[in-house]
């Protein structure tokens, strides 16, 4: 079937297998920041923003994408706020293997769009869908709080 959607600000119109999942599709386009981790949506490594909200690309079928606005880290890397978040993650040692980092950054970006001054509970909640096996979430929480408090030196 034919779907038209927006990917990182650019219109995409393409013929797709409706049952193909969005994770496979994005990676086939070379959008590699979106990762495969679990096949079932639990791990959140494949997080993308859909109309500003974090969702799991592996749980979205291409046939449902029509009219949606999809964002990945590739489209946000040059944005000022993303650079500040990345700086905070780097400075606070919030990245270990880095496999879940794009997902965490997108989730945090989505939170900040809705709520520029989130509290700790809100940050923990937005990380709830993203598994990390390296950090115990301790330093990502520290980095995110730093961003929320506007304490990042860019």
């Amino acid at each position: 079937m034919r779907v038209a959607f927006q990917l990182n600000g650019k219109p995409v119109e393409t013929e797709v297998e409706p049952g193909m999942n969005v994770l496979e599709f994005l990676r086939s386009l070379g959008v590699f920041s979106v990762k495969h981790g679990c096949d079932h949506g639990e791990c959140g490594s494949c997080t993308v923003l859909v109309d500003d909200k974090p969702q799991n690309a592996c749980l979205m079928l291409m046939g449902t994408l029509d009219g949606e606005r999809i964002e990945t880290l590739e489209g946000l890397n040059a944005r000022r706020r993303m650079e500040l978040m990345q700086a905070a993650f780097l400075d606070e040692g919030a990245i270990q293997c880095g496999y879940c980092t794009p997902a965490m950054l997108l989730a945090l970006e989505s939170l900040l769009r809705a709520n520029p001054k989130p509290d700790e509970a809100a940050i923990r909640e937005v990380f709830s869908g993203i598994y990390c096996r390296c950090t115990g979430y301790v330093k990502p929480m520290v980095a995110a709080k730093k961003v929320a408090l506007g304490e990042v030196d860019g």
Binding site: G30, F32, H36, L90, G93, I95, G98, Y99, T101
Partner: peptide, 16 residues
């Protein structure tokens, strides 16, 4: 981290 920027930017640095 010396490899941190690439990881933070989601660059294609993993095996797949």
């Amino acid at each position: 981290r010396v490899d941190g920027t690439a990881l933070a930017k989601g660059k294609p640095v993993f095996a797949d």
